[in-house]
């Protein structure tokens, strides 16, 4: 549905995107993550036909952004990181205006507006002024706007940015609903915990380069490559730590959360079961043995190096 080949964008000396190769399939919810200035917005704006790449190719729904932008515009819905408001327009008028721009006419227009307002739970605000809406409602309205012409692809640039927790949850639920409708969604966000729940694939970008792209499970597994185990013994925590540190295959052993010991194994270690057997052999009674939970934030921190273009 979305494909980029060696996509490059350069502003004078600054390379914002560096030979980006990205593939997003139909129905994917693709989380695009990276530090500020990494090239997320640039990528989304190129796919949204708002920027022209310096070199390389980008395709949306099979159409190239170079020369077939008109076709792409009918297939995409773009939500920028900052919501653009028209003064003195009601919610319905705002949607009518954009529906007219998408050449949706007559009764169909009224039906579509009714449907998107229902979907985004904004029906009760249909006569409210757009500039009087809260930020969360505005974001929902922005999503309502991009759904008017039933696009195949949604390009969402930081849709949860600056929202309070309740509004974030509302947006997340709405996006889950869109996922069930079969939309292909490219979403950039800083709130990684939510992306994990929402997306089936993620891409990590830094300094214009795609460091990772693939299923969420894959990146979590990748981040888990150096096994970290947490154990708890009934008594003698300090002794257990000392013993673990002396083991050849243990890279690190520290006490966390009071009496839980976190053990990081060397790369050469086969699996983490050796920790349990080692402690058991030395007479420690184990209360807990578990793998450290890896979330997207840990994975992100491991994959990126903290550089910003």
């Amino acid at each position: 549905m979305i494909e980029t080949r060696y996509l490059t964008k350069q502003y004078k000396d600054l390379i914002a995107l560096d030979k980006l190769n990205l593939t997003i399939d139909r129905g994917d919810i693709y989380g695009f993550i990276g530090p500020n200035g990494a090239g997320k917005t640039t990528t989304i704006r190129i796919l949204g036909t708002l920027l022209r790449p310096t070199s390389g190719q980008a395709f949306v729904c099979g159409y190239s952004v170079n020369g077939q932008a008109k076709h792409i515009r009918r297939k995409i819905g773009y939500v920028p990181d900052e919501f653009g408001t028209y003064e003195d327009m009601t919610v319905t008028e705002y949607l009518e205006f954009f529906a007219a721009l998408y050449e949706i006419k007559g009764k169909e227009r009224q039906r579509v507006i009714h449907d998107v307002l229902e979907l985004t739970d904004l029906s009760y605000k249909r006569d409210a002024q757009v500039d009087s809406l809260s930020r969360g409602m505005r974001q929902r309205l922005a999503l309502a706007r991009v759904l008017l012409h039933d696009p195949d692809v949604l390009l969402l640039d930081e849709p949860a940015s600056g929202l309070d927790p309740r509004a974030r949850i509302e947006i997340r639920e709405l996006l889950k609903e869109l996922r069930t409708m079969g939309k292909t969604i490219l979403i950039s966000s800083h709130i990684l915990s939510e992306l994990k729940e929402l997306c089936n694939k993620v891409g990590i970008i830094e300094r214009g380069q795609l460091l990772f792209s693939g299923p969420v499970e894959e990146i979590l597994a990748k981040a888990r490559s150096h096994d970290v185990v947490q154990v708890k013994v009934r008594e003698g925590t300090d002794r257990a730590v000392e013993a673990l540190r002396a083991h050849d295959l243990v890279a690190r052993a520290d006490v966390i959360d009071g009496d839980v010991i976190e053990v990081q194994l060397q790369e050469t270690a086969q699996d983490h079961s050796l920790v349990a057997s080692f402690l058991h052999e030395r007479g420690f009674r184990l209360l807990l043995v578990r793998e450290q939970e890896i979330d997207l934030e840990d994975a992100f921190m491991k994959v990126t190096k903290g550089h910003v273009a």
Partner: peptide, 8 residues
Amino acid sequence: LDLLATTP
């Protein structure tokens, strides 16, 4: 203007 620009 960005919103308009992504319409046809």
